[in-house]
C-alpha cells in the first residue's frame, strides 16, 4: 500500500469513527434511550472519544517521539483548561448552593 492510500484510509477511518460517535449520542437523545446522569456521562465519554479521534486521525497527533513538543503542549493545555474550567464550575457551583 502506498503512502497516499494509507493516508487516505486514515482520513476515511477517522470519518467513520467520528460519524459513529456522533450517531450514537444523537440517537440516545432523540429516542430517549437513556435518562439523567447515565445519559450525561455517556454523552461526555463519547464526546471525549470523538475529540481523541479528531486529534489522532485529522490532526495527526500521536505518541511518536518526533512530535513530543506538540503533545506536551496539548497535555499542558488540557491541564490548565481543566484547572480553569473545573475550578470555575466548582467555585460558581459552590456559590450557587449558598445563595
Amino acid at each position: 500500500m502506498t503512502d497516499r492510500q494509507r493516508e487516505t484510509r486514515m482520513y476515511l477511518v477517522g470519518f467513520g469513527l467520528a460519524l459513529t460517535l456522533t450517531l450514537v449520542p444523537f440517537a440516545l437523545v432523540h429516542w430517549g434511550l437513556m435518562q439523567g446522569r447515565t445519559l450525561a456521562i455517556t454523552i461526555a465519554v463519547l464526546a471525549v472519544a470523538q475529540i481523541a479521534v479528531h486529534l489522532r486521525f485529522f490532526l495527526h497527533i500521536d505518541l511518536s517521539r518526533q512530535k513530543r513538543e506538540d503533545l506536551q503542549l496539548i497535555l499542558f493545555t488540557v491541564l490548565l483548561l481543566a484547572i480553569m474550567a473545573f475550578g470555575t464550575l466548582w467555585i460558581m457551583g459552590n456559590l450557587a448552593t449558598r445563595m
Binding site: 449520542p25 437523545v29 439523567g36 445519559l39
Partner: peptide, 19 residues
C-alpha cells in the same frame, strides 16, 4: 473548529435536550 463543535453539540444541544 470541528473538534470544538463536538463539544458544542454534546454540551449545548444534547445537554440542553436531554430527557
Amino acid at each position: 473548529l470541528d473538534l470544538i463543535w463536538v463539544a458544542v453539540f454534546s454540551i449545548v444541544y444534547l445537554g440542553g435536550l436531554m430527557p
